[in-house]
């Protein structure tokens, strides 16, 4: 089955699974059952397009997702899958694509790495993908807060400690 972006259901499922493993957030947060925001459907085409453009490798995204699917089929733990996905022997572009996927989910923005110079260290700049991606950035969840400018809380809630981290990541006990 192919949706309007050309992605198959398997592609999307693998994208969600890989995203959850790499970000450390549960799939229930990455892609909730009821998902009116549906940021995953915005991210998959951005990821595909950007990685294809930057790597000049039209098969790289498919390769990444297939590798994830293969590791998943071996019933490895999230930690084992993540470690293998980010292993240097996958190739520089492969690993960088996975790292950019993490950054995108956390920030809602697409990163560009500015190499170090004699004077300045390596830095990252980024382009915000959309208003929705800004507010769904996982970075606000990992700090147990809310997007700056998009609070769903009520007056004075800040005087108490927030809910446990697990309530934000979807993983019980704060662990993945």
């Amino acid at each position: 089955m192919t949706d309007i972006t050309g992605a198959t259901a398997d592609t999307m499922n693998n994208f969600i699974g890989l995203s959850a493993v790499l970000t450390g957030f549960a799939t229930s947060i990455i892609a909730p059952t009821l998902d009116p925001v549906d940021i995953k459907s915005e991210y998959l085409p951005v990821f595909t397009q950007k990685i294809t453009e930057e790597s000049k490798d039209p098969t790289l995204v498919t390769t990444i997702l297939q590798k994830y699917a293969a590791l998943k089929a071996q019933q490895l733990s999230d930690q084992q899958i993540g470690t293998q996905m980010l292993a240097p022997d996958n190739g520089t572009n492969f690993v960088l694509a996975c790292r950019k996927l993490i950054f995108m989910w956390y920030s809602g923005a697409w990163p560009t790495i500015i190499p170090a110079t004699n004077k300045d260290p390596e830095t990252t700049v980024s382009d915000m993908i959309s208003a929705k991606s800004y507010t769904t950035g996982l970075v606000w969840q990992v700090m147990q807060a809310h997007p700056m400018g998009d609070s769903n809380y009520r007056y004075g809630y800040w005087a108490k400690a927030p809910a446990a981290l697990s309530a934000y990541t979807g993983h019980q006990g704060g662990a993945v």
Partner: peptide, 13 residues
């Protein structure tokens, strides 16, 4: 990545 990224960022922010 994963759990160590979550706990590190949480500890810092």
């Amino acid at each position: 990545f994963g759990a160590s990224l979550v706990s590190t960022l949480n500890g810092i922010y």
